[in-house]
């Protein structure tokens, strides 16, 4: 884990340079491609795209279908009579906006908490040498090995006695518990990728520890902050079982719990309302997909930069 590639230390700090390099590379690609288009590669990629996009396409397709088209023995690959009924039914199932609000509050809280706390802790673990540091690192690793549902048991009992179940705080702390060790671990990798000479130079210029952190280090680990925020976001936004176990009042459900509740809904008599469920899944996914499309460049370049010092 200590090997470093030639470009590592540079890429976190100097991405524009990489981009320029990438641009010149793709120009040379173009000229070559005029001579030889990689048909086989394109074909494989096309098959891959169809396979990988199919589930999402099928979700959207189903969401717009009336019930009769959905339950037909020969599937329709496009809705014959597109309808928005499924969306209305999905939003009408309980209170969509309340669940959205619950999810946003709890997840935002958990992400902010774990990133802010994790940033400081990662700085300490990467920039200072003190007794117990190794113990902490080992602890952070071991926590990752607990099955996700293991912590759920004691948290449930403890939060119950503190009357924290069925509250935003309880759920948020449960998410922080799951996410914080991982965030510290990931961000520490990003700190380590920054040459320590930078701090030392600043110190010689008389900067305080705090100034070194805020003026020099934090801006440089921004890709790491983004990357770990995204991981923290994914982990808590996707959680189903903790929210399901903790939240008793339906007004406190989060979106995943709401979505899964379609399984046996609508009277238990007609089974899963797949149209409504797929419409709900579409609504649930759109914001995340948009968000991912926007940040993906940062995330991926950030990850590969931090990767080198995992």
């Amino acid at each position: 884990m200590t090997t470093s590639t030639p470009s590592t230390t540079r890429s976190a700090a100097a991405r524009p340079a990489d981009r320029a390099a990438g641009a010149s590379r793709s120009r040379s690609h173009v000229s070559r491609r005029l001579r030889r288009i990689p048909w086989i590669s394109c074909a494989i990629a096309a098959v891959f795209c169809v396979l990988w996009a199919f589930p999402v396409y099928w979700m959207v397709n189903t969401a717009f279908k009336p019930q009769s088209e959905m339950l037909s023995s020969t599937p329709h690959f496009l809705p014959q009579n597109p309808t928005l009924d499924n969306f209305f039914r999905a939003v009408g199932q309980g209170n969509f906006l309340v669940y959205l609000q619950n999810s946003v509050i709890v997840v935002a809280g958990a992400v902010i908490f774990s990133i802010v706390l994790g940033l400081f802790a990662a700085a300490a673990l990467s920039r200072f040498r003190f007794r117990g540091r190794r113990t902490i690192m080992v602890f952070l690793l071991i926590v990752q090995m607990l099955p996700g549902t293991a912590l759920l048991i004691p948290q449930f009992l403890i939060f119950n006695s503190l009357n924290l179940l069925d509250t935003y705080w309880g759920l948020m702390f449960a998410y922080v518990a799951g996410v914080l060790p991982f965030s510290i671990w990931v961000m520490r990798g990003f700190f380590l990728a920054i040459p320590v000479e930078l701090d030392e130079a600043a110190r010689i210029d008389g900067a305080s520890t705090w100034q070194v952190l805020t003026k020099i280090l934090f801006p440089l680990v921004m890709p790491g902050i983004i990357a770990s925020s995204v991981f923290a976001f994914i982990a808590s936004w996707n959680d189903y079982i903790i929210a399901y176990t903790f939240m008793k009042d339906q007004a406190h459900y989060t979106l995943p719990v709401w979505l899964a509740s379609f399984s046996t809904a609508s009277g238990g008599q007609i089974g899963t309302d797949y149209g409504g469920q797929m419409a709900g899944a579409t609504l649930f996914s759109i914001p995340v997909v948009v968000f991912f499309m926007i940040i993906q460049r940062n995330l991926v370049s950030g990850m590969s930069a931090g990767a080198v010092k995992g």
Binding site: V56, M59, Q277, S285
Partner: peptide, 23 residues
């Protein structure tokens, strides 16, 4: 195109994708 497809699959919340799978 491949990048967009990949991000699409990546960004799907796994509760949603599990339910899609069931369907």
């Amino acid at each position: 195109v491949v990048t967009v497809v990949l991000i699409l699959a990546w960004a799907m919340p796994n509760v949603a994708s599990s339910l899609i799978w069931k369907w």
